[in-house]
Design a protein around this nucleic acid. Sequence first.
DNA 1: TAGTGGTCTAGACCACTGA
DNA 2: CAGTGGTCTAGACCACTAG
Lengths: 253, 253
Amino acid sequence: MGTTQLESVPEPKYWHLRTMLSEALDSEFSVGEILPNERDLAARFGVARATLRQALEQLELEGRLQRRRGVGTTVAPPRVGVAVGPRQHAWPGTGDDGWRPADCLAAVPPAAVAEALGTGRDEPVHTVRRSRVTHGRPVAAELLYIPSASVPDLTAIDAPSGAARARAVLRELQRLELEHRENAVELGSAGAEDAKELDRLPGAPVLVVTTRYLAGGRTAALSVATYRADTCRLTFGDSGDMEIHHGPETRAS
Amino acid sequence: MGTTQLESVPEPKYWHLRTMLSEALDSEFSVGEILPNERDLAARFGVARATLRQALEQLELEGRLQRRRGVGTTVAPPRVGVAVGPRQHAWPGTGDDGWRPADCLAAVPPAAVAEALGTGRDEPVHTVRRSRVTHGRPVAAELLYIPSASVPDLTAIDAPSGAARARAVLRELQRLELEHRENAVELGSAGAEDAKELDRLPGAPVLVVTTRYLAGGRTAALSVATYRADTCRLTFGDSGDMEIHHGPETRAS
DNA sequence: TAGTGGTCTAGACCACTGA
DNA sequence: CAGTGGTCTAGACCACTAG
């Protein structure tokens, strides 16, 4: 029978909104431009503010928009390509890769990290905090866990604490011969500390890159780095920048 | 002075909720268990349902929960480690890597893809659709763009369309000598088609992996694969599974 | 059909920014 | 200070699933 079964799947309003805004962004706005405020936009489209916000959240997730409290909503620039493990056989802190050591202290790592490192449950390890800056913007915050066994010659006198200490630990680490690096990427949400460092609110989506540094058959160091998911595109395998479609969500409905 | 300036940053309710639920998940629930429904949970914590939902959304984003309409909210298993580019010098469709070719048609690719391939603006390319299954669950949907120049000997007679056609295209592609693969990962949201394929709702968060296959100094093929961000952890650099902390958001507040 | 999560509303108040 | 986005509420209805 001619059952015109279309319209059987009514599109949610926020999704339709997202599509319309996305097209408007492509055709009528340029990078950095400020959008009308949420209340006006909601009124213009005849929806509640919460619904409008749902659409904006999508677009922010996709890196199309940037929202700042007290300021407004602006059109985001294309995502920055960030090289992860540009030289697969290099220790952290080698060369000028954009990482800036911030601090270092001895602390007991999370249980899962301790297990990966093969250290005891209550054994403190060197914990280096670093942050990464690209184009003047903070893009990543990292915690590097380094067991004492990986830097046996490190003396407490070298540098008691702070950034200097962090650099000393990395310098010692580089004396080992690196065999291999293993990376994993997953989605996470920024904790309070990371959020502050990345200039975002708690819960902001981040790409969590876990890197295991193998030397002498052991895991000599382990890094957990959180990248801003809204502004970053992580690139693997040396060569830096592919410029493919700034907005994912390729196939339309 | 003893300015007890704590409490100067009141934590949002939904964030506090998220933390409490997360701890409860660790200690009082096991994988697969069903949580109380949202209305009950909201009442139990004395918040509006929308606020409770905000917390659940966070946990789902982190891969801790799984929600299904009409069914309920369950505790999610740890994320699946999915190898991306396990053999850096292999074409797609080589060996049994979990990818299943679904379809193939000739279509004009998005402008950004055409540019990367170096094809004309209105030139159709072979567009292969594949889906990837791990542990019986769909984890990724892919579109593979292959210019005709990369498979010059392909005849229309080989296989007119469908999965057979897709396999024929991949077989032809493998005759070229692969020089290099470049990967990029970014956050995106599932379009309508991908969402259906991944058994998710439109707008669900996905990890978009863009792979460029280089042969003969050209981009011989380009793949855009979307992985379920809630259930997948992408691993790079051969070796498969690192088992580091199932829930990101390491540093607590 | 009963119960679940998904969508949507209209309103309120808060935290932050910049003039 | 006025204006922005961020949080929260209480309620309604819809779409889906399973018994």
